[in-house]
Design a protein around this nucleic acid. Structure first.
Lengths: 217, 217
DNA sequence: AATATAAATTAGGGTAGTCTAATTATATAT
DNA sequence: ATATATAATTAGACTACCCTAATTTATATT
């Protein structure tokens, strides 16, 4: 059994691991947990002893199979509670996260499954993030290309079609990774290029070829 | 803001205060919290400093107005979550308590009210315990006498009609107090006496006169 | 009233999780 | 290749909550 704090670390590590290519250093984890790096070093020791993570100076922190299972379970509960708060209690999507943080640590093996059933087995939370099912599997995200998204819509990167180094490097340069949120601002009729907003800040124009190689949901 | 532990102490004190006449000593509180009396003494100091309780060697522990408000709020949340778990997720009444213990500490001023509305403003939880409303008021419990309860039904003592010392002493002797749960096993047609189960264990026969002097809900 | 028992309190210590400050290791730049 | 900056780690300390053991204070019994 893990403490609330340990669970929050696992969740944080899981979250950081969604942006691959970035290794999870004590400093990165400290920033994401809003604690001092010294505290993180202590916790890394503890979670390593409990076989929930592996830590290698060069590779950074990685969840073990068990650690990953626990983290996914917390994420599942978090997102299900978000759906509950939004769908049943009428909360807006910007509020649900903080409340769900408090509900996600409830321990009772059946609870998440009952809640899931009650909510009608939702696949995505109010932010569009996928909800792991009872087996920890994420819903298969439809193979929609960025190029098919209409102007004004928001979506989220789920995968890349072209996996060449040059494309991945380009993505990195644009700070686009798995789960990055994109908003299509405008589609240029002339050549199919798109003006998109990446995350919260940067607005960029990308080519038709670019948009045809990025899967979104 | 109080910690989770502080909240649990307040809740426990509130619960013990429901059985009046019994003063809340450090030992009683220790038993109810399943901790050592020494720990309770520490917490009494802390809660006193925070002006949530008053402690007098002779009168025992009492909640201040503020402490009482907080305790009632936790009880409200606890019981609302119990209703949610039973009504919406199909849990049986013997399971909901432990899960609700984990949900009751969720902090968000509006949450309880939204949940209350969603559940249709229930007045009693699955155990028959009254749910405080948004203003901390308990629902007016109907003036039903034990004698009016049908065989097989379970109810809970809400008040006494006859307040004479002999009656109260008799109640004490039977371990019947406010909030004690009673189950009517059988009603004897001949003289109106009743076989009732008191709490979990004792089964006793009580007279018609007895049953006509106890209010239940 | 004196004594035995029980309750309350104090003293001192443990664990989990946090911090700051100091140190060591690693990466970067000249 | 060495100096510098950044990251990782260690040392030591703090708070919240809990404990045991010893002591003091009440309560009951004879």
């Amino acid at each position: 059994m893990q403490s609330l704090t340990e669970e929050n670390y696992l969740k944080s590590i899981y979250g950081l691991a969604q942006k691959p290519a970035e290794k999870i250093t004590p400093t990165a984890l400290a920033a994401s947990m809003c604690v001092n790096a010294a505290s993180v070093v202590d916790m890394i020791k503890k979670l390593t002893d409990k076989k929930l993570i592996n830590y290698d100076k060069h590779k950074g922190v990685k969840l073990t199979t068990l650690g990953s299972k626990i983290a996914i379970d917390i994420v599942r509960k978090h997102r299900l509670w978000e759906v509950f708060l939004a769908d049943k209690l009428g909360y807006s999507w910007d509020v649900v996260h903080d409340i769900a943080e408090q509900l996600e640590h409830t321990k009772h093996q059946e609870l998440a499954n009952r809640l899931d059933k009650f909510l009608g087995y939702p696949e995505f939370d109010p932010h569009g993030d996928p909800i792991p099912n009872a087996h920890g599997q994420l819903p298969a995200t439809a193979n929609v290309l960025l190029s098919e998204i209409e102007a004004g819509k928001t979506c989220q990167v789920t995968a890349v079609k072209d996996t060449s180094a040059v494309f991945l490097q380009y993505l990195e340069q644009l700070s686009v990774g798995i789960r990055t949120k994109l908003k299509v601002i405008e589609k240029i009729a002339f050549d199919g290029s798109m003006i998109i907003q990446i995350g919260k800040a940067n607005r960029t124009t990308v080519s038709k070829k670019f948009a045809e190689n990025l899967f979104v949901a």
